[in-house]
Simulated scan of single mutants.
Amino acid sequence: MPTPPPTGPLCTRATLASDLRALGVEPGETLLVHSSLSSLGWVCGGRVAVVQALLDALGPDGTLVVPAHTGDNSDPKDWGNPPVPEEWWPAVREATPAYDPLTTPTSGIGVIPEAVRSWPGALRSAHPQTSFAAVGPAAAVLTAGHAQDCMLGERSPLARLEKADARVLLLGAGFDSCTAFHLAEYRIPSPVAENGRAVMTPQGRRWVTVRETSVSSDRFDELGADYERDRPVVRGTVGAATVRLFPLADAVAYAEKWLPVHRPGDV
Rank of each mutant, 00 (worst) to 15 (best):
V238G: 01
A193F: 11
P82I: 13
F175V: 04
A49T: 06
K163R: 15
G145T: 11
F246P: 05
T3P: 02
P85L: 09
S118G: 08
Y186N: 04
R235E: 12
G62I: 01
L58F: 07
G145H: 09
N81W: 07
C44M: 06
L40R: 06
E222P: 00
A159C: 08
K257G: 11
A134D: 03
K77F: 13
I109M: 09
S118I: 05
P85S: 09
A225R: 14
Q129R: 15
T130C: 12
H69I: 10
R117C: 04
R13Y: 05
T70H: 06
Y254T: 11
G136K: 03
F246I: 10
P137V: 09
W119L: 05
D218E: 10
S107I: 05
T237D: 02
L64H: 00
V48F: 00
L31I: 08
N195V: 15
L245D: 01
A253K: 15
V252H: 03
S36V: 12
P202H: 11
M200I: 06
E222C: 03
V168I: 14
G265R: 15
H146K: 07
F181D: 00
D230Y: 02
W258A: 03
A240I: 00
W119D: 06
H34R: 00
S190E: 11
R124W: 08
L40F: 08
D61G: 14
G62P: 06
W42C: 11
A140L: 14
Y254N: 01
A49G: 03
A53L: 05
F181V: 10
V84A: 04
D78F: 10
T209F: 04
D19P: 08
E162R: 15
N73Y: 03
L102Y: 02
T201S: 11
F132M: 10
R197F: 12
R155P: 04
L32M: 03
S217A: 13
G8F: 08
V215R: 04
V141R: 10
R219G: 01
L10K: 12
C11W: 01
